[in-house]
């Protein structure tokens, strides 16, 4: 699936990170190429969210190198190429008085220079992003009035409104019912296949995402496995690590 590209979109080399004296990530190295749909899996506390936050510059690693689009993270400035749906998106303050339109508009700021004002032309991009996630009719609704699944769609719209090359999602379906999860992953599959957006997904729903992903990274402080879906299914290391759950991700529905 990966198109030819002169450099990986994400390059991680020898990353180590500790919270105080607790080692969270040890010697992590991986690459994410254009077109990938990568699922990052692992038990709670395995460092999945920490790794994403380091890649995105939210946390600073103790050692190691990160490159985005061939550029060192420290000097990276093309933030509009990235979309991000954080874990906290599923725990938003329901009383926060912000409309779906205002949330999606936030996604446009990465592509703007000072003063970052929303123009009339931006309204078209906001409408398009909302339509893409089938939330156009909820544009003026307060985000706290929407259901969990609808809120996630709004956050996806915010993440894709700038037409990013790569989209990071951190356990986006936490607290969302099974039927909504399936519709949500269908949307991600479509963004990957139709819109050609590279997707990096932290998830516990390994059974549900199996039919969409083409790469898997299995993390537990160290990188247990990183490779394509077929290699993952044949890996004895993964079999030992997941203890019977491997087949969930290998069985494509």
């Amino acid at each position: 699936m990966s198109d030819h590209h002169p450099y990986p979109l994400v390059y991680v080399q020898g990353v180590n990170f500790a919270y105080g004296t607790t080692l969270v990530l040890s010697e992590i190295s991986l690459e994410i190429s254009k077109g990938d749909f990568l699922a990052i899996i692992g038990p709670n506390g395995s460092g999945k969210t920490t790794l994403i936050k380091i890649i995105l510059g939210i946390l600073r690693p103790d050692s190691g190198q990160i490159k985005l689009f061939g550029q060192d993270l420290g000097s990276f400035s093309k933030w509009e190429k990235l979309g991000y749906v954080p874990q906290s998106a599923s725990q938003i303050d329901s009383l926060f008085p912000v409309s779906a339109r205002e949330v999606v508009a936030m996604g446009l700021l990465s592509g703007k220079k000072f003063p970052r004002l929303i123009t009339r032309a931006d309204e078209k991009a906001i409408d398009e992003a909302l339509e893409l996630v089938d939330m156009g009719k909820f544009k003026t609704r307060r985000i706290g009035e929407l259901s969990g699944g609808q809120q996630q769609r709004i956050f996806i719209a915010r993440a894709i409104v700038n037409k990013p090359d790569i989209l990071f999602l951190d356990e986006p379906t936490t607290g969302v019912d099974a039927a909504t999860q399936t519709r949500f992953y269908d949307l991600l599959g479509s963004l990957n296949q139709v819109q050609k957006i590279t997707i990096v997904l932290i998830t516990h729903d390994i059974g549900v995402v199996s039919k969409y992903v083409n790469k898997v990274a299995c993390l537990n402080q160290k990188l247990i496995f990183h490779g394509n879906h077929e290699e993952f299914c044949r890996s004895s290391v993964v079999e030992d690590f997941l203890r019977g759950e491997q087949h969930l991700l290998c069985h494509r529905h």
């Binding site: 400035s77 990235l82 954080p86 998106a89 949330v103 936030m106 700021l109 970052r116 004002l117 915010r158």
Partner: peptide, 19 residues
């Protein structure tokens, strides 16, 4: 205004947007 709103609502994502 827009940056303050984004940071107030979701400071982590605001940071990933280069704010």
């Amino acid at each position: 205004y827009q940056e303050l709103l984004f940071t107030t609502f979701d400071s982590e994502s605001a940071k990933v947007s280069g704010i």
